[in-house]
């Protein structure tokens, strides 16, 4: 059987979901028998080198780079999974959505109580920097997402079960405890 190919990324996330993924511990040896990694921080491949079966997205979209990467994932992956609260709902970064972007920048770089060094009141505007979006978007508002794995971060067992289900093509068991509201 051909190995399935997996890609992962963290957009506006904290890498907590990736850490949780690593919590599958020694099962990573089993996993590597089943799958091959492509673009991912796990193997540090920066660009897609082939069409991928499963793309796993951590984090929502807060800047133009997130959008580009997410679109590249959609183009290069057959199945996309939103992993964790931030990818699904924007999560902690989306707390800024109730505040205007101008106010956020002002607080972060000019007027905030922890701003001490920025005497010239410079706002980050270098051409090389990604551009900030007006608000933080969940991934499914940008591209079509096929599956959602909720949690902050989703438990390692849940990620494992979901991956195995996707790789083997078997249905995943979702008992009430997993899908209950809170």
């Amino acid at each position: 059987m051909n190995k399935k190919i997996i890609a992962t990324t963290s957009l506006a996330g904290c890498f907590g979901c990736h850490m949780s993924f690593l919590d599958i511990d020694e099962r990573i040896f089993d996993l590597i028998e089943l799958v091959e990694f492509n673009k991912s921080p796990i193997d540090d491949i920066k660009k897609f080198t082939k069409q991928v079966d499963i793309g796993i997205i951590e984090g929502g979209c807060c800047n133009s780079e997130n959008i580009e990467i997410l679109k590249a994932f959609r183009e290069n992956c057959n199945i996309l999974v939103s992993l964790g609260e931030c990818a699904i709902m924007g999560g902690l970064p989306a707390l800024r959505n109730g505040i205007s972007i101008e106010e956020c920048l002002e607080e972060a770089y000019i007027g905030g109580p922890t701003v001490q060094e920025n005497t010239n009141k410079i706002l980050p505007n270098d051409d090389e920097l990604p551009m900030l979006l007006d608000k933080v978007y969940p991934c499914h508002e940008i591209v079509k997402i096929d599956y959602f794995l909720p949690g902050c971060a989703p438990r390692a067992d849940l990620i494992w079960d979901a991956l195995i289900a996707l790789v083997t093509g078997n249905e995943m068991e979702l008992p009430y405890e997993v899908v209950k509201f809170d």
Binding site: L123, M131, D134, E141, I142
Partner: peptide, 26 residues
């Protein structure tokens, strides 16, 4: 179908920090 418009959504931040839109293509 998403209604998302990248150019529109970066306008506010760009004009506040004083830069032009620059869309890299990964």
């Amino acid at each position: 179908d998403n209604v998302f418009d990248l150019e529109k959504s970066v306008e506010a931040a760009n004009s506040f920090v004083g830069r032009k839109a620059n869309f890299h293509h990964a």
